[in-house]
Nucleic acid binder design. Structure first.
Lengths: 172, 172
DNA sequence: CAAAATAATTGTATTATGCAACTTTCCCTT
DNA sequence: AAGGGAAAGTTGCATAATACAATTATTTTG
């Protein structure tokens, strides 16, 4: 229809599912959208994490922490393997690695088996950093996520893992 | 300890919770971190959404869709109210609005009651766009999230809503 | 009426993101 | 063994986001 309705395009009320209001406002179709909740949660979680790591070399952005752990745990790992875990393309991954090499937390060598490929190694500084970051992640899980009721934690985690794994399957 | 262990810093195996592997790699402490799953899901969901909206005026970034719906549903809404829903600061919100005004989808007036404040209104073009975007959101929910098993959908949605609302409560 | 709170903007610095084009190296088939 | 195609990374380009601090203008409060 072309008539401009002033009435919000709301979702029908569901008896067991009261609608969501934010400061008295409803959010239209987003109220029932997985994407809205995932994206909103992400924004706040990521901001919190950035602040906790503000003075570290891996602050900001989504790939550096994972890359740090992968290189720390798997000496000689290749950028393409990292890209696969990150679900990001190689340019993006390469640039993450660039910055981490520049920060002196990892080291890049040419793979001995394959001259095209690189082998990544953690530096001492990087290893120390990884330990610090593990502490920060643990702290965030305990402090930030305290709004998840204890009785919900396991269920939510199971759910997230299942959804995540299915999503990966879809994109592999 | 200062000895550099080459063995991954893995989480203890949990009988009812098999560990997560990605391409044969484990992800260290992230395996048990809410933040990892939320941030990973976000990245893929957002990329998918960006692609679906690539040729529309509200592609990319996290605030524009919500802003569009809010302005469409609440004529005269103020930027600070939008910022509150977005959980973002006013500069960020202001720039989202700038771009949407430039794109001709919303219109900015000075509020009649408060000379400091603005009142936002949807344009005809913006209203049409909102309808298109509603279609895209619906399509994404159906197509992209098909990896969520039907029997999990309700539970996951309930969980997300609860977690989201608790998170908001924490930051208000 | 002065001081404090509120609404929004501007400035700055950093980072991310995706895509396409390109180089080098390896692998496999003929 | 040679050549085509695949794979690993890099570079270039165009957009945009993001946070934070400082500033202007207006309104409210004491």
């Amino acid at each position: 229809m072309t008539t401009k309705s002033t009435a919000p395009n709301f979702i029908e009320d569901d008896f067991d599912d009261p609608h969501i209001e934010i400061g008295g406002l409803r959010i239209d179709i987003l109220e029932g959208a997985f994407s809205w909740y995932i994206r909103s949660l992400d924004a706040v979680v990521s901001r919190d994490l950035d602040r906790r790591m503000a003075d570290l070399e891996v602050a900001k952005g989504k790939g550096k922490i994972t890359t740090l752990f992968l290189v720390d745990d798997y000496p000689g790992i290749r950028p393409s393997q990292v890209a696969d875990v990150l679900m990001r393309d190689r340019p993006a991954t390469g640039r993450i690695i660039d910055r981490m090499v520049a920060a002196g937390v990892i080291r890049r060598e040419t793979s001995s088996e394959d001259q095209r490929a690189q082998a990544l190694y953690i530096t001492d500084k990087g290893h120390e950093l990884a330990e610090k970051v593990r502490g920060i992640i643990r702290a965030q899980e305990a402090e930030f996520f305290d709004f998840i009721a204890p009785e919900d934690r396991d269920q939510f985690m199971q759910m997230l893992k299942r959804v995540y794994l299915n999503m990966r399957k879809k994109w592999d």
